[in-house]
């Protein structure tokens, strides 16, 4: 039995929307990894934490989750700065295993904190203004997904502009390219690291509020977001913003298609199968430079 073309088209469309949100999530992680060489395994868990925060705020204020980004982004920016100062900075020069282990520890703490506070039930926001469907004949567009995809793309391009066209962006890229030379040129590498890490975590606050316009919070979404974003970075290489968006869309579409055509279970596993294959055959990523 073949699925109808409409169903496939709908599924691809949903995958594209999801993909843009993924690109926003992956952006923060790739910045932190690319500039600082820090391997953050807790990235997804910050989104999880943010989702719960948005859930509490949006339900309390009876308002739309997307507005909560006004609170979550600055808050997470500050949390990011605090974590950088206390946990990340001390392990900057240490061996990769210790660096990864420390962020695995952060993720584990956040996950179990959520489990302790909220139990394992999924939670969704009740009030959303965006829970509307635009019916276009063959497909219907979920407004919340459309808006979150649009906003994600806007922010990704905005950060790209910041990196390529401003003085701060130049300093960040110089630091990523060569720390020692950058500091010789008078760039305060410590401050750049602080900024980049805070920005990376701040962006998860935004991603969380966009996610909650249509998704649910539960303690384990963090690890699946986290792994998925690493898969995206592996596929995209650490090249540029176009590779990042392209691989986010690929992952989103693959996931959405397998969810529709095969089963939700398979859709959770399939990106990782692709990931391992890519690592085997093209370790520099699908879009990375050789």
């Amino acid at each position: 039995m073949l699925p109808s073309p409409g169903l496939i088209f709908q599924s691809v469309l949903d995958g594209v929307f999801l993909g843009f949100l993924y690109s926003l999530i992956a952006l923060g992680l790739s910045l932190v990894f690319g500039v600082m060489g820090i391997i953050n395994f807790a990235h997804g868990d910050f989104i999880m934490l943010g989702s719960y925060l948005v859930w509490i705020l949006a339900n309390g204020l009876r308002s739309d989750p997307s507005f909560m980004s006004l609170a979550t982004v600055p808050l997470f920016f500050v949390i990011g700065a605090a974590i950088y100062m206390t946990i990340i900075r001390p392990v900057l020069g240490k061996e990769p295993l210790i660096q990864i282990a420390v962020t695995v520890g952060i993720g584990y703490v956040l996950q179990n904190f959520a489990l302790m506070m909220f139990r394992a039930e999924p939670r969704a926001v009740q009030t959303t203004y965006l829970n509307l469907y635009l019916n276009l004949g063959v497909v219907s567009i979920h407004l919340a997904k459309l808006i979150s995809a649009f906003l994600s793309l806007l922010i990704v391009l905005g950060v790209h502009y910041l990196l390529t066209k401003t003085w701060v962006g130049l300093a960040i890229r110089a630091t990523a390219y060569d720390r020692e030379v950058a500091s010789l040129m008078g760039i305060n590498v410590g401050k750049i690291f602080l900024l980049v890490f805070s920005l990376g975590i701040g962006l998860t606050g935004l991603a969380a509020s966009l996610w909650m316009t249509f998704g649910q919070a539960d303690p384990y979404i963090g690890s699946s977001f986290g792994l998925l974003t690493w898969v995206i970075i592996a596929l995209g290489g650490l090249g540029g913003v176009s590779g990042l968006i392209a691989s986010s869309l690929i992952v989103g579409i693959i996931q959405s298609l397998t969810m529709t055509l095969v089963s939700p279970t398979v859709s959770l596993a399939i990106p990782y199968v692709v990931f391992i294959m890519v690592l085997w055959f093209r370790p520099q990523g699908l879009f990375g430079k050789v």
């Binding site: 946990i87 420390v102 695995v104 520890g105 584990y108 703490v109 179990n112 302790m116």
Partner: peptide
């Protein structure tokens, strides 16, 4: 989840 939270902190 408290013990796991503590173990995660211990790791850090």
């Amino acid at each position: 989840g408290l013990h796991l939270l503590l173990f995660g902190s211990l790791l850090i």
